[in-house]
C-alpha cells in the first residue's frame, strides 16, 4: 500500500447511496490499484457537517468528499440547473449526461479548486402528500419540506410554505403537521418510514438531487502516474452511471412496493396538468439564468447544452 485516501460523506453507512454507490466505487478503486491505494470511508458527518463537504475536499481536510451542491445555495449556480424540476426522467443515463455537460460547461467555472469525479443522482423523486395533489395549484397554502434550495423556491412560488427540517426529522414534521407534503426520492418513503404520513404520490419525475464526488487537487497531484490512472478510470461518465444505477434500483424497488400496497394512492397528472406544472416552474429557469449571468456565464448556451445532453442520452422528461 502506497497511499491512504480519506473519503467523507454525510449519510448513514447503511443506506443505498452508500452501500450501492460510494462503497463499491471505493472498493473498485482499491482493487484496480492492486492494493496500492487504500480508501478510508468516514460516513455520517463524522468529519464535518453536510453543507461543509465541498470545502472539506477543497481545504484538504479529506481527500475525497461526497457533496450535495444543493445544500449551499448560490455557491454553484451552473450546477443548480440539475435542480430544476421536470427535466430528468432517467437518472442512470441522466448521470452520464450531467457528467459530460458539467465537465464542459461548469466544473472549471465553479468547482475549479477540486477534481470532479462522479455525479450521483437518485432516481427522479416525487411529490408525496397527505391529500390528493395533481396540479400546481394544489401546493398553494401547504407546508412542504423541499429537497433543496431550488425546490424551496418552487414551493414559495406556488404559494406554499417551505419547511426546512433535516431528512431524519421529516417523519416527525409530517406526523405533527409541521409539514403536509415532501419532495423525496421513492426510497426515502421506506428509509424514513413515511408511508403512513404521506400515502398519496404524484407519479411524475418531479426533480432530481445530484451529489458530486470531488477530490482534493493536491491529493490527486501527489499520486503516482499509475495511481492517477486508476482514479481517472473511476472518474468517468460511465462510473457516474454505475453509481447512479444502484441507487436507482433501490428507488424503483421502493416504488414497486408502494404500487403493490393498497394503502398507497398514485396519481398521474394529465397532459394539461403537466403543462401547468412546467409553466409554474418557468420562473425558476429565469431565476437560474439570472444567477448564472450574474457570474458571467452564458446562461442560454449552458442551458441549451444541458437539455441537448439529456436528449442525447435519452434521459430528458
Amino acid at each position: 500500500q502506497e497511499v491512504t485516501l480519506r473519503l467523507s460523506h454525510w449519510i448513514p453507512p447503511t443506506i443505498s447511496p452508500a452501500t450501492k454507490g460510494v462503497d463499491p466505487w471505493a472498493a473498485s478503486v482499491m482493487e484496480a490499484s492492486e492494493g496500492r491505494i487504500e480508501i478510508q470511508i468516514f460516513p455520517a458527518q463524522q468529519l464535518g457537517r453536510a453543507p461543509d463537504h465541498y470545502d472539506m475536499a477543497k481545504d484538504g481536510i479529506v481527500d475525497l468528499s461526497w457533496v450535495n451542491p444543493g445544500y449551499t445555495a448560490g455557491r454553484f449556480p451552473i450546477y443548480a440547473a440539475t435542480e430544476l424540476p421536470f427535466m430528468v426522467e432517467d437518472s442512470i443515463e441522466g448521470a452520464k449526461a450531467i457528467h459530460e455537460w458539467y465537465m464542459e460547461y461548469g466544473a472549471e467555472q465553479e468547482m475549479s479548486d477540486v477534481k470532479v469525479c462522479f455525479i450521483h443522482p437518485h432516481a427522479p423523486g416525487a411529490l408525496h402528500t397527505q391529500e390528493t395533489v395533481t396540479g400546481p395549484d394544489g401546493v398553494s397554502g401547504k407546508n412542504v419540506r423541499p429537497a433543496h434550495a431550488t425546490m424551496a423556491r418552487f414551493v414559495s412560488l406556488l404559494g406554499g410554505g417551505p419547511v426546512q427540517v433535516p431528512a431524519p426529522e421529516v417523519r416527525e414534521a409530517l406526523s405533527k403537521g409541521t409539514a403536509e407534503a415532501v419532495t423525496f426520492p421513492w426510497g426515502s418513503m421506506y428509509d424514513f418510514n413515511l408511508t403512513e404520513e404521506v400515502p398519496v404520490h404524484l407519479d411524475m419525475p418531479f426533480y432530481i438531487s445530484a451529489q458530486v464526488m470531488v477530490m482534493n487537487k493536491a491529493s490527486y497531484d501527489g499520486l503516482s502516474d499509475e495511481n492517477k490512472a486508476v482514479i481517472d478510470d473511476h472518474c468517468t461518465p460511465e462510473w457516474s452511471g454505475r453509481v447512479a444505477a444502484g441507487w436507482h434500483e433501490d428507488d424503483m424497488a421502493a416504488k414497486d412496493k408502494l404500487l403493490a400496497d393498497d394503502s398507497q394512492t398514485f396519481n398521474t397528472p394529465s397532459e394539461d396538468e403537466v403543462a401547468a406544472w412546467r409553466e409554474a416552474a418557468a420562473p425558476l429557469t429565469e431565476e437560474w439564468k439570472e444567477a448564472v449571468s450574474a457570474k458571467g456565464g452564458d446562461a442560454d448556451a449552458i442551458l441549451d447544452a444541458y437539455k441537448a445532453k439529456l436528449e442525447e442520452y435519452g434521459a430528458a422528461y
Partner: peptide, 17 residues
C-alpha cells in the same frame, strides 16, 4: 472572503452569507 467570492446565500431570499 470565500463566501464573498463564492456567492453563498440563504435558501429563500438569496441574501448573501
Amino acid at each position: 472572503n470565500s463566501a464573498m467570492s463564492g456567492g453563498d446565500a440563504t435558501m429563500d431570499l438569496r441574501l448573501p452569507h
